[in-house]
Design a protein around this nucleic acid. Structure first.
Lengths: 362, 362
DNA sequence: CTGAAAGCGCTTACAG
DNA sequence: CTGAAAGCGCTTACAG
């Protein structure tokens, strides 16, 4: 009670309360941060006065500065947040990561991806965090660059490799090769590929050898190499395989891409898709054209999301442990590592054969 | 080049670089934060020395403290993050919110919900943010309390009301009433309800009048009141309507709840579910028991998520603008409001009639 | 159980 | 175009 000024000239701080009570700032700080360090009655008194003065509690930024840590981890996504939140693959990763950080009581700071692929570094520089998790960005991503320059512990997921950062990746190349080998064993010889972006330049369309060689998304390169490994080993010319690069991982883009590929002559008998969503779209394109799967056309996906088992027919795909990828990334950054020796974790992939693949048509 | 000490005794700061170059700290700061304030050549020089010294750029916490803002917004969810990320309703909200904050270049800080419903306030107190968005928590939620005590701009979504905070809500009561009226018009007289938690105490099971009256989730109360309004107006006794309270918004819990309700005698002819996911589960329970929908049993959902149109039969439900809710929450906090006059936005709901409801069986 | 002192690293008027 | 000064609000040894 008493001196509740009508006009608050300045917000209350620890000092305001200390002055009011004729105690030191230390004691007021202790009332909040180390309750066992002072007399309960005094603490009670301090909290009362704080309330009366409209004190909002110790300032979080000041605390972070002084303590040298924030209790938050920054997350940088390839795509915009609003998109990432609709993609089942990113979502499963995010879920795994959240499980790990939440258990540890750590905040997760979602750093925005500017829509226009510009700047974006600013948000990274201003992020009050103790480390970064960078999810599947391009070699030359500006936000990755900015994160690395901050010299905080950083875990990169999927791509790209950086010697200063820890890495969690999956066996992309081996998984892709397994899918292609499976189709080769079924007698297929005419292939086509539906790919993710090869670079962060917004291009979509056919991707010839030059563009493939210049890819700045290592994962896209690895998967193409996996397919190429298998086809070349079977005596086929990889250069002749049409690769359709699509901007987004959605059913719609998959359908569009498959449409383009299926309208070529000669028509491919097998489509290798970079994801289950793209493959599901390809299934629709096949249906539209009256092509039966797998009799007239075989299709493989990648990821093994829940929906892969629900499509008609269910998808042959390459399983990757998405949830585990998130948990592992969280665990690594929470545990830390010896300086100059960031860990690398390689998670396995596995071919899952379902009904979307069958013998090549005669 | 030159003095690259093998052992870094202390991390470099603005001062380190200033000393090295015999310029002031101000000038070094300007090189980063106000490039137009100094000679390009000098700036170049400063950046070079910074790189050489391993300077990580202006410290984010110090910057936040000095500037008095962080560029981040804190998000507090009802449920754990890892769960929120699997719920289509939360996800759509999050997507809308992300669209708004991302466009503004603002970071989103996901504040963890402790699994054990304990504490949680600590993460709120330490969050370096300029405001909070609180998504659908209970009246007595500890994190909401903590957020309010920090006296930062806060937008509450759905519930509960607080005079210090802005509010974005939907017409829950009216929406619920509309669903019940629709069923009454079809001749139904024996109802049952599948509800969300009424309080944050972890209980699930039948919820009688006492428990309903003590509910600490205002939305759950509003929806029950909406149903009750309609039934009472039709001359029915609300007290006789079984309400089954379920802990989670999933298909599985919906199936379990409907199983319990359908095994009662007399069996209800209409089930009012708090969500489309719960209703989809109820559809499964009906199928298991050989009850045809809508001939033997009518079911209504709530939300109108995409899947509501895909169930068999498609769900009659109450549409709420989920994406818009997120966008609105983001817009409000980004725009701010005159002190002492936080805005309240009420978004409409709308009955969507599909095939899961029909005339009451004779 | 309590307090005086040092310092975390920066930005922002302001003066020159 | 550059610099000296003030101050953002706090926590943490340390001494008593």
């Amino acid at each position: 009670m008493g001196a509740q000024g009508k006009i608050t000239l300045k917000r209350a701080t620890l000092q305001t309360i200390a002055d009011r009570l004729k105690v030191s700032r230390t004691t007021v700080s202790n009332a909040y941060s180390r309750p066992d360090q002072l007399n309960p009655a005094l603490r009670q008194k301090i909290l009362e006065v704080a309330k009366e003065l409209g004190y909002a509690g110790p300032d979080a930024a000041a605390r972070s500065l002084r303590r040298g840590r924030s209790g938050s981890l920054g997350l940088i996504f390839t795509e915009t947040l609003s998109y990432a939140v609709t993609d089942p693959v990113s979502l499963l990763f995010l879920r795994g990561l959240a499980e790990a950080t939440e258990t540890a009581g750590v905040n997760l700071l979602l750093i925005p991806t500017p829509m226009d692929h510009e700047d974006g570094a600013a948000a990274v520089l201003d992020a009050v965090v103790d480390g970064f998790i960078v999810y599947s960005v391009a070699e030359d991503d500006a936000r990755l660059q900015a994160a690395l320059e901050r010299r905080l512990p950083t875990v990169i997921v999927d791509q790209p490799r950086r010697k200063q950062a820890a890495l969690v990746e999956i066996a992309d190349r081996a998984g892709a090769r397994a899918a292609a080998e499976h189709l080769l064993a079924l007698g297929h010889r005419r292939f086509a590929v539906i790919a993710f972006p090869l670079s962060e330049d917004g291009y979509d369309g056919p991707a010839g050898p030059e563009r493939q060689a210049a890819a700045t998304f290592p994962i896209s390169r690895a998967r193409l190499e996996g397919y190429a490994d298998a086809l070349r080993a079977a005596g086929l010319r990889w250069e002749d395989v049409p690769v359709q690069e699509m901007p987004l991982n959605t059913r719609e883009t998959g359908e569009d891409a498959a449409g383009i590929l299926l309208d070529r002559t000669p028509r491919p008998t097998a489509i290798l898709a970079f994801s289950d969503l793209l493959a599901a779209g390809a299934l629709r394109a096949a249906a539209t054209r009256g092509l039966r799967v797998p009799e007239a056309l075989s299709i493989t996906g990648f990821d093994n999301i829940a929906e892969a088992a629900q499509t008609r027919p269910p998808l042959t795909t390459v399983r990757q442990p998405l949830l585990e990828k998130g948990i592992t990334a969280g665990r690594l950054i929470l545990e830390g590592w010896p300086e100059d020796d960031p860990p690398e974790v390689l998670l396995p992939t596995e071919l899952v054969v379902r009904a979307s693949t069958g013998p090549a048509p005669a």
